[in-house]
């Protein structure tokens, strides 16, 4: 598919075994369906890449949370941070994010600067552009073999993926 993003790009937001089937997820951490998708994919034997699909129309929190995830990633805490957000989706206000950063023992002052900086903004903007170019029309958008699918992957979807691999 022309313009399809690399399913396994270099970068910090990748988890799972190197030789597991790659799954690229464009998501918004405030989106309940994305949270469900993360829960399912994190517990599956896949190589999961997260990229942000933050839409301005959804208000300021998705962007704030994406910035926080980027900042956590710079201190090697992207996945623990995302896992914690998914586990407590109602706790994403700034004081909650600071508390979470402290719990994960990351430098809160640095975290707070990093999440608002241009580097984080550039990553978030690039992810959005790539996601839309790939054909994402909502969240979660999962790119598999260059094809975009939307929705929360269920057990059958994961089983089929593993069987194909």
């Amino acid at each position: 598919m022309a313009g399809a993003p690399d399913p396994d790009p270099p970068g910090p937001h990748v988890c799972g075994p190197q030789d597991a089937p790659p799954v690229l997820l464009f998501g918004d951490a405030t989106c309940p369906r994305c949270q469900q998708a993360v829960l399912r994919l994190r517990s599956a034997p896949v190589r999961l890449t997260w990229r942000h699909l933050v839409l301005r129309a959804r208000g300021p929190r998705p962007r704030a949370l994406a910035g926080a995830l980027e900042a956590a990633g710079r201190q090697d805490a992207f996945w623990p941070f995302l896992d914690a957000v998914v586990a407590a989706p109602g706790r994403t206000d700034d004081p909650d994010l600071w508390e979470l950063a402290r719990t994960l023992e990351i430098d809160v002052a640095r975290f707070d600067v990093d999440r608002r900086d241009e580097r984080a903004a550039a990553v978030i903007a690039a992810d959005l552009a790539d996601g839309l170019r790939a054909g994402a029309v909502g969240t979660p958008a999962i790119v598999l073999d260059g094809v975009v699918e939307h929705g929360v992957p269920d057990d059958a979807w994961i089983a089929a993926l593993l069987q194909r691999a």
């Binding site: 839409l55 301005r56 129309a57 959804r58 959005l128 839309l132 994402a136 029309v137 909502g138 939307h150």
Partner: peptide, 13 residues
């Protein structure tokens, strides 16, 4: 639901 996603995505354009 789908219309909701559609217009929010198009807003970016």
């Amino acid at each position: 639901p789908v219309c909701t996603d559609q217009l929010q995505v198009y807003e970016e354009l």
